[in-house]
Design a protein around this nucleic acid. Structure first.
Lengths: 195, 195
DNA sequence: GTCTATAAGGGGATAGAC
DNA sequence: GTCTATCCCCTTATAGAC
């Protein structure tokens, strides 16, 4: 692998483990196994290297959300995507960035993160709208709202898992979400309105 | 206010804004308006000061969850607590800490965060169990799971809000959660099971 | 392309005067 | 109790040799 790729891979790993602010160029070079000259030859500095690394990470993570558009009924796809294995204690490689002030205050990095969430939420909204059309969710469901609720459950699951140092809270949060969707499904066509 | 309190208040504010790793003793002293000697007189160092500050923050934040035990039916209390105003783009003062490796790797600080979530989740579980007993939620609801789902929605709402630099995703996530609870409520006593 | 040397400033803490 | 002076190491980068 080229020095350049070694550097972006190392930066991606360190962004995940430590975040942007806490990762020094020295750390990246040591992990990549290249010298200082290499890094400043390929990149103007830490910032440009992080932009390249985070872009690659986002492509990877957002790619997985295409499963929301796979086979099965809309509700099945939603439940299947929610139930994908996620290592809670490691945190989300993208969502994690939002807690780093140096990322949020950096227009380039924030744009990458915001774009990732835009794409993912758009996919959620479409599958939810399809589920409503298919009669799998109540007709008064607001796709834009439920999309954010479900995305938040995944992001929040990571937070709970890290707070407790355990995988279980993440899995429990997802199971609770699936149960709520099942209940919402069960409420369709009963004619009962919320009190 | 005493120098000691000035210091813990300043540290609490900086933990919220920047996190633990990114906050230097120098920052804290400048914000508190006291000299270096004062800080090292009252505290052994950055770590002990952070423990004191974070403990105070947790007492405050966890105190708000007592609203889950206030007046109204269990489901009403759940929806009311979910709908409390929260400044999404500022992030959660406690949940934020979980993304800071220096916090998660520090047994003292992690214990404070874990304890906060334990208390909060316990309150969620009790009000959920009460809602099930009252027939406001399906009988097969698992309180431990739904508690984590709802806590995750709030934590994830902060993540979404920061990712987009806007309050709206947080509020949308909560409205979607309330809608799901209403649908789950509507599904009770219909006899319909998830397909 | 990749290396080492070096610089200017910050992080975290100690020493000791007042 | 609070202050200033000082220390050592790390961070981010530039310079220039190879």
């Amino acid at each position: 692998m080229s020095s350049r790729d070694q550097l972006t891979d190392a930066m991606a790993a360190l962004l995940w483990e430590r975040g942007y602010a806490a990762t020094s160029p020295r750390d990246v070079m040591a992990r990549a196994g290249v010298g200082q000259g290499s890094m400043y030859h390929h990149f103007s500095g830490k910032h440009e290297l992080a932009v390249a690394a985070l872009s690659a990470v986002v492509d990877d993570v957002v790619g997985a959300t295409s499963q929301l558009e796979g086979e099965g009924s809309p509700l099945e796809r939603m439940k299947r995507y929610l139930s994908l294995p996620r290592q809670g204690t490691l945190g989300c490689r993208v969502g994690r960035m939002t807690q780093d002030p140096q990322v949020v205050e950096d227009a380039d990095l924030l744009a990458i993160v915001a774009g990732a969430f835009d794409t993912m939420l758009g996919r959620w909204e479409r599958v939810i709208a399809a589920a409503v059309d298919a009669g799998e969710l109540p007709a008064d469901t607001v796709p834009a709202e439920l999309a954010r609720t479900l995305a938040a459950i995944i992001q929040g699951g990571y937070v709970l898992a890290r707070a407790q140092g355990a995988q279980e809270p993440m899995d429990a949060a997802v199971r609770g979400a699936v149960a709520l969707l099942d209940a919402a499904h069960a409420s369709v066509r009963t004619g009962r309105r919320p009190i």
